[in-house]
Design a protein around this nucleic acid. Structure first.
Length: 742
DNA sequence: CCTAATAGCGGGACATCATC
DNA sequence: GATGATGTCCCGCTATTAGG
């Protein structure tokens, strides 16, 4: 017994080296492709899939769940595995596909691990197709007497391609296209560079610590990157004499490439890379869909500490970075439709602040957290009303409103099944849950209900729904109170005293299909009296109800963007963009937009601006002479430098917003009227005629704007044979008001 | 990256209740 | 009483934090 548990510990330590955390199988699979981890269990059965000839192992997790993992066909492997039935097994996996749990097979996950997604230890043997270099040198030290016999699994690449699982199977490398640039060092191979510098190494930022000072008075930053060759992140330590030489904070999930990092080994443990002061350079691709050259490098050159546009980034590098971003882009999980409400409920609709013990209610709530297991789902929900009977969460893992505004809802049976499709941050109506009291705190149960009666039913809520609107209004007020004060980097930002919105320009229907119908700007002045009467909470004083109409129906914004001004470098946001109402177009989330199959398509959405590219706004101005074509865009003149004619030069603006809503970021190309209007009152300022500043102040970062946009396809390169069709997101229908007069 | 300590809570276990 | 639904408790796992 003793030796058994000893062995177990050692094995755990071994897998821990690669997968960091041992976790619940259900959790790994639920979180899906961004996650990895390993779990322990027993090999309970071995099967063979007659059609694909794959081997299927059935593992029973220690917690009782079972999973089927199919492996590449191999006689020897099958033979080896039969001896392992009933033995302890540890399965480690990376990037598993999200498994949509089937309620009826609640303890049984039928899952295919592809060849590069797993390792497992059975008995004393490590089964893996992952190259030996993967194994840290620490293995031997850590487990000197336990060196596992290594069994190399046959390569299953062909089965991967023949057995297309489309969206449901994670096949990390299958659809990337292209190759890693030959002069990049795969993270997998850094071991061979110990003590030396690697010319180029790139990855997706997995962790980025805040910039700190060193004892020597320099600046330092730590980050982790991953690439396709290694799910074990490479730690990178960067040192610089100037803070601006370091990458900006907040670059998690961006693609980054470094030059001249030194590969070092920490005492007996693992390797890391170091960017020495005045040596390394980097370039960062910040946005998934922008295939323009937006990288930049900060040179450690005291004479020129400003970020410089890169000039040495090759097209190969650029492709590689784009490819990394594509690789990191996750979850194509189809969002299953939540049924629309059908029929009316006899149950009273209640706000959480009004609930009472033992009653059955219907409520409209935002989902804060979903924990799901095979047969039960725990939701944390809020409608932004407070009650002393609700608990006040202190979890940092999921965001929640302050105070006692959160209720736990435990769903079972069919209701648990419905809950599998809920999305955190969205608002749903939950019909027929029973309020219970657990030591003074209320929670809710949902499920079938007593036989004969109707069970719990979850439905989506239309944004026009009154409860929906009121919930958002409450949320808005809560956030308004909190977030305004918590913006240390961004002083009050004297928001333009919006005198009568004057003649805020409406965008005329642009070339992209119908523009927004004439939205009445007057709405913005409309008092919000009626709502506040019914929903105001005493504790949340809403400073004068400064909620304007365009912000009323906002989708939930779960994450703040604290680093924005620094992140931007040159551009600060200061004027308000406001959107024409667009009732004829669907109101979508950015996620919906990204995966909408119809292209082109018009839509509207709410988001905040988190980045503008290029960040030097002058770079967004394109000038051309009406007689002789494009001219250097930095020309500050109305006379053409080439043909010398005067008043022939025209300027246009084209730039990208990076917009963010509760679900994701979306880069959007802005041009034509929308761009002109956005910058109209700033144009000559931009052009340097009023003081020579190239920077622009636009928008308020805490603002959420409405946008009308269009998705369309464009050919990246002129040759229709080799060119690539890309999705682009154009904006129209914006209008601005009140650029910050100064 | 590591280890260690610890708080929080996931979720299993099973008691109790409701219904037939 | 049998069965299934619901209610409650609390163990142990895990995430988090701190320090190296």
């Amino acid at each position: 017994m003793d030796s058994g548990s000893h062995k177990h510990t050692l094995l755990t330590g071994n897998l821990n080296k690669r997968y960091q955390n041992r976790r619940q199988l259900s959790e790994i699979l639920h979180k899906g492709r961004t996650d990895r981890g390993h779990f322990a269990g027993k090999l309970v059965a071995l099967e063979r899939d007659n059609s694909t000839r794959k081997i299927v192992i059935v593992v029973k997790e220690n917690q009782g769940k079972r999973i089927k993992c199919s492996l590449p066909p191999s006689k020897n492997l099958y033979h080896n595995l039969t001896a392992g039935i009933t033995k302890d097994i540890q399965v480690a996996m990376s990037n598993p596909a999200v498994v949509v749990l089937d309620v009826d097979k609640s303890v049984y996950y039928d899952y295919q691990l592809e060849y590069d997604q797993y390792q497992f230890i059975l008995g004393q043997e490590l089964f893996s197709t992952i190259p030996d270099a993967w194994r840290g040198s620490s293995d031997e030290e850590e487990i000197p007497t336990q060196s596992h016999e290594r069994v190399t699994l046959p390569d299953a690449q062909e089965s991967q391609s023949t057995h297309q699982q489309s969206k449901h199977t994670a096949a990390p490398n299958a659809k990337l296209g292209g190759k890693m640039p030959p002069d990049w060092t795969p993270i997998l191979n850094v071991n061979s560079y110990l003590g030396n510098r690697v010319e180029k190494i790139a990855g997706i930022v997995h962790r980025a610590d805040p910039i700190r000072t060193t004892k020597m008075g320099d600046w330092a930053m730590e980050l982790d990157i991953v690439d396709e060759t290694s799910i074990q992140p490479l730690e990178i330590k960067l040192y610089a004499s100037e803070k601006v030489h370091l990458p900006p904070e907040g670059i998690i999930d961006k693609a980054i490439m470094f030059t001249k990092l030194r590969i070092l080994q920490r005492k007996g443990a693992y390797n890391y890379a170091q960017g020495d002061k005045n040596v390394f350079q980097y370039t960062c691709y910040e946005n998934n869909n922008i295939f323009h050259d937006v990288g930049f490098v900060r040179l450690d050159d005291d004479a020129n500490p400003r970020p410089e546009r890169i000039h040495w980034l090759t097209s190969m590098d650029r492709e590689g970075l784009q490819r990394l971003l594509r690789w990191s882009r996750n979850e194509l999980r189809p969002v299953e439709q939540i049924p629309k409400p059908n029929g009316r409920s006899s149950l009273t609709h209640k706000l959480l602040k009004d609930i009472a013990h033992n009653e059955s209610i219907t409520c409209t709530v935002e989902i804060l957290d979903i924990w799901t297991e095979s047969h039960e789902v725990d939701l944390k929900v809020t409608d932004y009303t407070a009650s002393p009977h609700l608990f006040e969460p202190n979890s940092t893992r999921w965001s929640h409103p302050p105070g006692r505004r959160t209720m736990r809802v435990r769903l079972r049976d069919d209701a648990a099944g419905q809950a599998q499709n809920l999305v955190v941050g969205n608002i749903y109506r939950i019909k027929n849950i029973r309020i219970k009291d657990d030591r003074g705190l209320f929670y809710a149960n949902g499920g079938k209900g007593p036989s004969g009666s109707q069970g719990t039913l979850i439905s989506s809520v239309d944004p026009s729904d009154t409860y929906y609107k009121e919930l958002l209004a409450r949320k808005r007020r809560l956030e308004g109170g909190g977030s305004l004060t918590s913006s240390p980097t961004n002083p009050p930002d004297p928001l333009p005293v919006l005198k009568s919105p004057t003649k805020a320009t409406l965008v005329q229907p642009t070339s992209v299909e119908a523009g927004p119908p004439s939205a009445s700007i007057d709405e913005t002045e409309q008092p919000i009296q009626q709502q506040s009467a019914s929903i105001a909470e005493p504790s949340v004083t809403d400073k004068k109800g400064k909620v304007s109409v365009e912000n009323r129906d906002l989708p939930v914004l779960r994450e703040s963007y604290p680093e924005f001004p620094r992140f931007m470098g040159e551009v600060e946001i200061a004027s308000t963009v406001e959107c024409a109402n667009a009732p004829r177009h669907p109101h979508l989330t950015l996620k919906d937009i990204r995966y909408t199959p119809q292209v082109p398509r018009m839509f509207y959405f709410y988001a905040r601006i988190v980045d503008i590219i290029p960040s030097g706004v002058a770079d967004a101005v394109h000038s051309s002479c009406t007689k002789c074509g494009p001219i250097d865009k930095r020309e500050d003149t109305h006379a053409c430098p080439r043909c010398k004619r005067s008043n022939t030069v025209q300027h246009s603006i084209r730039f990208h917003f990076v917009l963010q809503d509760s679900e994701r970021e979306l880069p959007v190309e802005v041009f034509d009227e929308a761009a002109d209007i956005f910058f109209s009152r700033r144009l000559h300022h931009l052009m340097g005629t009023t003081g020579g500043s190239n920077s622009l102040q636009v928008g308020g970062i805490s603002e959420i704007f409405g946008f009308v946009g269009k998705v369309y396809m464009t050919l990246e390169n002129d040759d229709p044979c080799s060119g690539q069709w890309l999705r682009r997101y154009a904006l129209s229908g914006c209008r601005i008001r009140g650029p910050n007069a100064r």
